Computed example of a mutant assay.
Amino acid sequence: MAVRYTVPGVSTKDAEQLIKTLQKRLSAYNDLHLTLKHVHWNVIGPYFIAVHEMIDPQVDLVRGYADAVAERIATMGGSPSGTPGAIERDRTWKDYSIGRDTVLAHLGALDLVYNGVVEDNRKAIAAAGEIDPITEDMLIGQTAELEKFQWFVRAHLEDLGGNLASTDSSTEKGAAEATRTDA
């Protein structure tokens, strides 16, 4: 669907490009808040309650980010898609792969999830910076908070030497396993 109008100062061609970028962020945020809830429900073992309760504010904020991105898409004249099909269509990552498991296993895997989301957000920030400072600013603020959440996750994975148990892992299952062997 072609954009017929957009915000003042942004061409419809630029708006269409930015809407595509934002749609991918919307799908990533919808996927992330569902993944976070999955982790919330499936963590077990020592520190369960601390991590269980740490995750809920992250879920709430990420759901809010999805709403803000969807509303920015609409403001720019686009039609945000928040369906499961949109998540599947826009996904460039595999579905979260850890079920019921220890706190550290989930946090090791979740660290990789945050790596992907933050890296993609930074690309979206760069793209938005070329077109629209308002959208760029929104994404910068969201990314700063996501990086803080990742720090919360990493604080559980870090040893006294500053090393993360899952540093060398490239898959969620590998990251989960690394936390078991380093614990």
Rank of each mutant, 00 (worst) to 15 (best):
H33R: 13
V3Q: 04
D31N: 04
D60S: 14
L22W: 01
L110D: 01
H33V: 14
E53R: 03
K20Q: 14
V59P: 02
L157E: 01
T171H: 07
K173T: 11
I44C: 03
L157S: 01
V10Q: 02
L34E: 10
T135M: 04
T21Y: 04
I87H: 03
E119A: 13
H52F: 04
K24P: 00
H156G: 01
V118D: 04
M1R: 10
Y29T: 04
A105V: 07
A2S: 14
Q150W: 01
N121K: 12
I19F: 02
A105P: 08
A66C: 09
R72Y: 10
D101C: 08
G78T: 11
D14K: 05
M54T: 04
R89N: 15
N115L: 10
A2V: 15
T6H: 02
A183E: 14
L36D: 00
D159S: 13
D120G: 08
E119G: 11
S81N: 08
L104W: 02
E172Q: 12
N163W: 13
A109L: 08
A86G: 09
A183T: 15
P84R: 12
A128G: 06
L146A: 00
L112H: 00
G108M: 07
E130K: 15
Y47R: 06
H40G: 11
G116F: 07
L36A: 04
D67P: 02
W151Q: 14
A178P: 07
G161S: 14
K148T: 06
L139M: 02
K94D: 15
T167C: 04
G108S: 07
A68P: 01
D14L: 03
K173R: 14
G64M: 09
